[in-house]
Design a protein around this nucleic acid. Sequence first.
DNA 1: CGCCAGCACTCTCCGTGATTGAGCGCCAAT
DNA 2: ATTGGCGCTCAATCACGGAGAGTGCTGGCG
Lengths: 353, 353
Amino acid sequence: MSFLCKIVRMANEAQALNERAQLLLKTLVERYIADGQPVGSRALSKISGLDLSPASIRNVMADLEEMGFIASPHTSAGRVPTARGYRVFVDTLLTVKPLDRIEIHQLEGQLQVENTQKLVASASHVLSELTRFAGIVVTPRRASGFRHIEFLKLAEKRLLLILVTADGDVQNRIIQTEKVYSPSELVEAANFLNQKFAGCTFEEIRGRIHAELKQLREDMTQLMSAALAAGDQAVTDSAEDVVISGEVNLLGIDDLSSNMGKLRDLFNLFEHRTTLLQLLDVSSRAQGVQIFIGGEAGLQPLDECSVVTAPYEVDGKIVGTVGVIGPTRMAYERVIPIVDITAKLLSSALTQR
Amino acid sequence: MSFLCKIVRMANEAQALNERAQLLLKTLVERYIADGQPVGSRALSKISGLDLSPASIRNVMADLEEMGFIASPHTSAGRVPTARGYRVFVDTLLTVKPLDRIEIHQLEGQLQVENTQKLVASASHVLSELTRFAGIVVTPRRASGFRHIEFLKLAEKRLLLILVTADGDVQNRIIQTEKVYSPSELVEAANFLNQKFAGCTFEEIRGRIHAELKQLREDMTQLMSAALAAGDQAVTDSAEDVVISGEVNLLGIDDLSSNMGKLRDLFNLFEHRTTLLQLLDVSSRAQGVQIFIGGEAGLQPLDECSVVTAPYEVDGKIVGTVGVIGPTRMAYERVIPIVDITAKLLSSALTQR
DNA sequence: CGCCAGCACTCTCCGTGATTGAGCGCCAAT
DNA sequence: ATTGGCGCTCAATCACGGAGAGTGCTGGCG
């Protein structure tokens, strides 16, 4: 709702600018992104392509400033884009150039498809390498049910419990038993669970197990409860989590590293997974690439950062989000396609399996 | 060898100092560690406990400087300890106060014993929390052999392969098959491997499998090679790795964050696991807590850092290292027992299982 | 009405002293 | 051996001033 309003307002704002103003804003933002210095009227008049004197440029710039798209750090500096300026820029002025085939292939080659965990980790890593910012991936959420269990004897009173969930995820844990189980007892217990409960959720199992338990000898209860505990663990572990790579890259960004305090806040944010998740969950409601500029997400540590995200899907259903966190002054036209393609590659890699 | 020489030289160096000089060096280092300012003769004369005037103190300080234990950043500043000064301090002057029972219990409570991975991660986290520096743990090395395998059918041509190594580690991977295997074929293949090769290393299996393979139908070869690949993966994955937590803490240390460049080098070092491993492997050759001061380890990024490590063991055998990376100006008397106890708790947690 | 040259004004950025204060080294006296 | 005293050095801080960059405004021109 408020989201739609925002879009509309944005379009209006952009329309309020005549073509010249738009071009100049675009040129200014591009220039500022390129070299990080406030852009003055002289410079703008040279590179804009329009044949206008600095004085005329200044008039337009004054308008742009009044409308809140640009601002000057101090009287005798050039102008820099404001958050709103960036907003208009990415929404209506930006021209993204898609990655060429070679780059896509390289990117694809770097994804490690062995298992979901590695896939997610490598996607995050690839994002950080390609953009030289921090890469983030929200792990796929899944509806986990019970598929298969196995008990393996490690020592007299030590068992290895292996649990396979419906989505093919494998959990394992070592349990100390009070009683010594024979291999056949272990097989029996496993068979019981596998036959009775395959396909059920752990919730269901918990509900039914008391009734069914009579069929088994009493000394099996320890195995059962261990299995259930592992199941719960599996559910907990497969909850959404966010994987971040290349935070180090952000240390090198002078926009951010200039004031240590902010930088530390930012890194602390990275350790606060839940907060990040909330932000990224929003992104998974919409299709395609989304961009959060500055504090738009409502998190102060992200003041001078932008977050570029895109959801990825399995079998047509959105299951997670990939993205990049970098300084607001980033090369959006490069980052956007990278995030976009990564999301798509991740989708197809996950769907194939 | 050169290591022994060093120890001996150190002892000599300490002996070359008379009692007064030792006390003053100790006081100076303690004071410097406490507030990070160069310590002047006036301050030292006040807090040393000795009843000496600043002028006398200055004489001693001049001697200490000549011997290379302290240095002054510039003419009109006090003195700060050099790396050698710290060395003597921790080797012969330092008085550590052991943790009290309550702290040990708190520490123990924070370790998550569910499985090895979590245990190691939590140990690293605890170290970083307690010291407010970066915690490091080298994962236990193990001699991995084959114990058990299982094939589980996920879909027509998709299998889940579960591999248990001798040390109870579980590997799993999804494989796409060309042929559709029946459940009984999968059981047959698993049984074949489990009976023939239980207890072998993957090397041995690779050697023997060609000979033994004739006994099985030809279409089993894909399963076998997949199993071997997973085995190799298991060996690779269970190779030593180092887990680091709380790097963020180092951002707050003003000794380090004063020059960004170094800080970045340091963080890059953290991403270079192999380099760190080499350093930490050294530590696992000796018993008890070891301390590397400044660049002693031969790594420039650690210029202004110290590394405090201690090996941990399973069944009396050293299998890994825990430690802390922080600024050279750290409260050694606090950090040393923390690292020491963590190593011991980790040892006992791993031995119990 | 749009454009533009010119001019005064405002700030930041540096470099240059001048001042202050901490701390040392040396020396002569005890 | 210890100590008080003296002169010296050097970092840190501040004030001042000029240079440079860029703006806003005004008045003139097509």
